[in-house]
Computed example of a mutant assay.
Amino acid sequence: MSKKYYPFIDIMRIIASLLVIAIHTDPLTSFNPQLNFLITRVFGRLAVPFFFMTTAYFLFNQGMPTYAKLKSVIKQFLIIDICSILLYLPVQIYNHSLSFEPIVIVKDLFMDGTFYHLWYLPAVIIGLLILYELYQHLNEKTIFMIVCILYMIGLAGDSYYSYLHQIPLIEAFYTALFKICDYTRNGFFFAPMFLFLGAFLAQHQWNFKRYVLIFLMLVSFMIFFIETLLIHQQPIITHDAMTLSLPFISFFFFSFCLTFQSSKRFVLYKDLSLYVYILHPLMIIVVRMMGKLTHLEHIFISQSLFHYLAVTGFSFIIAYLLILLKKGGKIYGYHQKTKKLDRN
């Protein structure tokens, strides 16, 4: 019997990468700021949790991973992280954002990322190490309590900082915390929650009907949407990546994705989505340079939708070419049917 795959997860990898690009380019600000807000600040905030959950799900879907398997996954992310740091090093030098202060180096490497989107890579590594160690010593309920506490600490320094910073003790705590990280959206406070949810779904079979999951998604999404609107009414927001309802909508949505099973999968999409995630800020720079060099700033830069499409197009083209180069000119088709176990 052939192995079951989850093609909808592969498709969602691409959609999530498109949403991440949208967050960083605001594609509809020239036409409809309200719709742009919905896409970037609501739908867009589901993308990174989805990536975390996907990583954990396929790491834990054969049971508790061995240390060797964990080490292999972390090594892959570490190599990608180092290559990404080197890729954006010239950009940092050019825009004078490179610092050699020890505290800044530590923050950039382990917390914030050396470029604004690269926080995700150390966050995956740190989050997986935390989760794996917790599983080695504690039961699942205790682990869940710990990741909830970590998430709540992050939440209070993120979307809810505006509500809580006036409390002296809380303000003092986060003043000290923000000396070692610019945001609480990192591998210590953000990643463990969604990695745990992915691992949890991998180890437990849920038999919810698809229509039940759709209902739960719609309810949790409406709560998530209202919460996001309320958060953005506040005068001070350190960030808006973490909300109370985000884990719920992420859990139900990922569960919904798992209901689509097949003997086929979209093999290419895993690497393509990762490469696009890494490359798209560089393509933003390229598109802006093209606009200035051709004196077409009103099209390449000011026209938000064209800017988004140009960045997206270049990101996918370059990503595909790099994968083609990596594979020696051979890439699987859109899907592959196989009985062999792959890494997803």
Rank of each mutant, 00 (worst) to 15 (best):
F8Y: 07
M12G: 10
R13G: 08
I14Q: 03
I15T: 12
S17R: 00
L18S: 07
I23M: 14
H24S: 12
T29R: 10
F31M: 08
P33S: 11
Q34Y: 08
I39L: 14
I39T: 06
T40W: 04
R41V: 07
F43C: 06
V48E: 04
T54G: 11
Y57T: 04
F58L: 09
Q62V: 12
P65H: 07
P65L: 13
K69M: 10
I74C: 15
Q76A: 14
F77V: 14
L78E: 09
L78T: 15
I80Y: 14
I85G: 11
L89A: 15
Y94W: 15
H96L: 14
S97M: 07
F100Y: 15
F100P: 15
F100K: 13
I103V: 15
V104L: 13
I105Y: 15
V106A: 13
F110G: 05
F110D: 07
M111Q: 02
G113F: 11
T114P: 04
T114Q: 10
T114V: 15
Y120R: 00
A123Y: 02
L128N: 00
L129P: 03
I130T: 05
L134Y: 07
L138D: 09
E140F: 05
E140L: 05
K141T: 08
F144A: 06
M145W: 04
M152V: 13
Y163I: 01
H165P: 02
H165I: 05
Q166P: 02
Y174N: 01
Y174V: 04
L177P: 01
F178Q: 00
I180F: 04
T184S: 03
G187M: 01
F188K: 00
F189W: 03
F189Y: 06
A191I: 05
A191V: 06
F194E: 01
L197W: 03
L197K: 00
L197C: 05
G198F: 02
F200N: 02
Q203H: 03
H204N: 09
Q205F: 13
W206T: 10
F208W: 09
R210L: 09
Y211A: 10
V212Y: 14
L213P: 02
L213S: 03
L216H: 08
L218N: 11
M222K: 04
M222L: 14
F224P: 03
F224G: 09
F225I: 11
E227L: 10
T228D: 14
L230G: 06
I231Y: 12
Q233C: 12
Q233D: 14
Q234W: 09
I236E: 06
M242K: 02
L244Q: 11
I249D: 10
S250I: 10
F253N: 00
F253D: 00
F254E: 01
C257I: 11
C257S: 12
L258P: 08
K264P: 07
V267A: 15
L268W: 07
Y277R: 01
Y277K: 01
P281M: 05
V286C: 08
V286A: 13
R288V: 10
M289N: 11
M290N: 09
L293S: 09
L293I: 12
S302L: 12
H307P: 05
Y308R: 00
L309N: 03
F314Y: 14
I317C: 12
A319F: 08
L321Q: 06
L321T: 08
I323T: 03
I323K: 03
L324A: 07
L324E: 05
K326M: 08
K326C: 10
Y332I: 03
Y332C: 07
G333S: 12
H335A: 08
K339F: 12
K339L: 04
K340F: 12
D342K: 01
D342T: 13
